[in-house]
Write a protein that binds this DNA or RNA. Structure first.
Lengths: 344, 344
DNA sequence: CTGTTAGCGCATTCAG
DNA sequence: CTGAATGCGCTAACAG
C-alpha cells in the first residue's frame, strides 16, 4: 500500500535532489543539515526503497539460491540452520527450492535461480550430472555443492567414505565379523555408494573372515522395519544402518521380537542426532555436523563472492559416538550406561 | 556470465523490434513467421529475461516471504513441504527468514520481506504482537499466520486447545486422575498456553478428583529428561508431554530407572510423527498434520492474492493416535501391540 | 558536498 | 499485427 512513495517524493519533501536522498541511503557524503531533513522526510512518508529498481542498477541481489533434496529431514534442517547463521547477519536472504531427490530437478532449479539473479547458489545434491558441472563452471555465479563431492567442483560435505570406514574398523576392533549393511538405493551417491564402500573397506581390511551382506531399504523407519526379517536371515553379529533412521526402524523390530540388543545382535547408525540417544539401547553412531557443513558452505560461497577463495573440496570432521548398541565380542557385553546426559 | 544478453540483442538478431520480442515472451500476438525468428534468436543467444527489470515493471515478484521460528524441527520441515507443494508448481518461490523463536525478529523479518517486494508472506509465529497486526492490515501484501491464532487476522493452524482437550478427555476416560503436564514456557502461546489450557479443561471437566500439576521444560529431549525427577515427584498416573520430544525424553528417563510404561505410569505426547512409533512402548499421541497446514496456508494466500478470499481463521483437524504408552486404569493393562506397521 | 543527466532491461501505451 | 516512444525507481558518473 505504501510502496507508492518513491525516492522522488522524499526528495521533494526534503527540498533536495534525488541523488542526495540516494546518497543518504548509501553512505555517500551529505551535510548534517540535509541529512536531518532527509531523515525526517523518510520517516514522514514511510519510504521504503524499491528492491527491484535498486537491483536493476547494482546487479547485486543479496539473494542466495538454495536447492534442497527435501524439507522434512533433520539433516536438511541443520544444514539450513548453519546457512542462515552465516548469511543472515550479513543481510543475505535465501531463496529456497526443493528438488525432491531428483538430480534433474536440481538442475532446473539451479537454472531458475540463475534467472532470478541470485548472487550465489548452494545445492545439497543427490547426484552430480554433466549439466551440474556446466552450470557450476559457466553460469558466472558461484555454486557450492554439499551432499556430494565431485572433482573439479566446489564441494563441502560430510566424509561419507571416511565415516563408513571408521565404523567398519571400529566394529572389527570389537570382534565382529558378520555384518549386514542396510542401505539406500544408489540414487544417492554419497549415502548409497561412498558410505557403504567405506564400511566395506574398513570392515574387511586385511582380514579374510569378515563378510558383509547388503540389504536395500528406503530412508524411513518403516521401510527399514519391513526389511528387518531379511536382514536377520543373514545371521549378522552386527547390523549397520546407513542412517540412524534405518537403524531405529530395525531396533524397533528387534524389540518386538524380543531380540536383545546388543546381547544377541549389535546395531549401529550414521547421523548422530539426539533421537538415537533416547531409544533403548541408545544407538552407537557417527555424528555428522550438518550445521557445520552449512556454515562452511556459506562462508565458502561468501569468499568466492569476494574473489578471495580458491577451489576447494572439503570434508568435515567426524565424531564417533559410542553408546549402548554394540557388543564387544572380545570382552563380552559392555557395561550399560544409564544416563542420557552422557550420550547426547 | 551470459546474463549480458538483453531483449535488445535478441531483437536485433531476429530483425524485429524490442516490443515484438517482449510480446513473444508474454503471449502477445505475433505472426508465426516472426515467432519462429525470435525463438531461434533466443535459443542462439541463450537469452534469459532479467528478473529485476521485469519485476520493476510488473510489480509482481512471484516471491513468497516465509518466516520460520527455527529450521531444525520436524514440524517446520513438514510445514515447508506443504508450502512448497502448493507454491512451487505455480512458479512461486520462497524467500526464507528465521526468527529464532523471537516475536520481535518476526516483525523485523516481515518488514524486510515487505521491502523485498514479496507478493505475500507466511509467518509461523510464536507470538502475535501489536506490530504484527499493523503489518498484516496495512502493508498491502497479504499475510497469513500459522502457529498462532489471533482474532481479526488470517490464521491457519493446528487446534491446540482442541488437541489438549481431546487428550484430557481421553485420559479421564481411561480412568486417570493424577496428571503432570510437562510443558514449555509461555513464550509460545499456542503450545505453552492453549494446548495446556485445553488439556486442563478436558481432564478436569465435570470431575473433582482430577488434579494436574505443571512442570516446565524446554523443547528438547534433554531438558525434559532433566525434569523427569521433578515430574515423578508429583506421583502422577500419567505424564503428558506438551510435544512428542518432551515425552521421549521422559520415556528414556523412566527406562533408565526401570519404571515400566504404561504399567507403572502412562505417558502421552503431541505431534504424532514417526519417531514416537519406534520407541518402546510406542507413544500414544495426537497427530498434527503440519504439511496440511502448509498446503492450506499456501492456498489461502493464493486466494487472497487473487482477491477471492474472505477473512479466515481456520484450525486443522486432529487425529488421535492410540499406541502403547497409556494404561487403561479401568480395565487394567492394555494388550500390547507388537507391530510397527499398525502404529505409523 | 550537491544537483543534473543518463541509463539499468523490460512492458506497454500509441500510432500506424 | 508491429515499431517507436515512454517510463518503472533507483544509482552513478559528471560537472559544478
Amino acid at each position: 500500500m505504501d510502496d507508492k512513495v518513491t525516492i522522488t517524493d522524499v526528495a521533494k519533501l526534503a527540498g533536495v535532489s534525488k541523488s542526495t536522498v540516494s546518497r543518504y541511503l548509501n553512505n555517500g557524503y551529505i551535510s548534517v543539515e540535509k541529512q536531518e531533513r532527509v531523515r525526517a522526510a523518510i520517516a514522514e512518508t514511510g519510504f521504503k526503497s524499491n528492491f527491484f529498481a535498486k537491483r536493476l542498477k547494482t546487479k547485486e541481489s543479496k539473494l542466495i539460491g538454495i536447492v534442497l533434496p527435501r524439507m522434512d529431514s533433520v539433516s536438511v534442517g541443520k544444514l539450513l540452520s548453519g546457512l542462515a547463521r552465516i548469511f543472515e547477519p550479513l543481510g543475505y536472504q535465501g531463496l529456497l527450492l526443493v528438488s525432491n531427490l531428483s538430480a534433474e530437478k536440481e538442475v532446473s532449479s539451479i537454472e531458475s535461480l540463475l534467472q532470478q539473479g541470485v548472487d550465489g547458489i548452494i545445492v545439497d545434491s543427490v547426484r552430480i550430472t554433466e549439466r551440474h558441472r556446466q552450470l557450476a563452471q559457466n553460469s558466472g555465479v558461484p555454486l557450492v555443492i554439499t551432499g556430494q563431492s565431485e572433482a573439479g567442483l566446489d564441494c563441502i560435505k560430510i566424509d561419507d567414505y571416511g565415516a563408513g570406514h571408521m565404523m567398519g574398523a571400529y566394529l572389527r576392533g570389537q570382534g565382529h565379523s558378520r555384518a549386514v549393511f542396510a542401505g539406500v538405493t544408489e540414487t544417492d551417491n554419497a549415502v548409497g555408494i561412498e558410505r557403504r564402500k567405506g564400511f566395506l573397506d574398513g570392515f574387511t581390511e586385511g582380514e579374510n573372515d569378515a563378510t558383509v551382506d547388503f540389504v536395500q531399504t528406503g530412508f524411513d523407519f518403516l521401510s527399514a522395519y519391513n526389511k528387518a526379517a531379511d536382514i536377520l536371515a543373514c545371521k549378522p553379529s552386527v547390523i549397520v544402518g546407513a542412517t540412524d533412521n534405518i537403524s531405529l526402524g530395525i531396533l524397533r523390530y528387534l524389540h518386538e521380537r524380543g531380540i536383545k540388543v546388543p546381547h544377541e545382535v549389535s546395531v549401529t547408525g550414521f547421523g548422530g542426532y539426539d533421537v538415537g540417544a533416547v531409544v533403548y539401547p541408545a544407538l552407537t553412531t557417527i555424528f555428522f555436523d550438518y550445521e557445520l557443513v552449512g556454515m562452511k558452505a556459506a562462508q565458502f560461497l561468501l569468499d568466492k563472492l569476494a574473489g578471495k577463495a580458491e577451489h576447494e573440496n572439503l570434508a568435515m570432521p567426524l565424531l564417533f559416538v559410542e553408546r549402548e548398541s554394540v557388543r564387544n565380542l572380545k570382552k563380552g557385553t559392555p557395561g550399560e550406561s544409564y544416563d542420557l546426559r552422557s550420550m547426547i
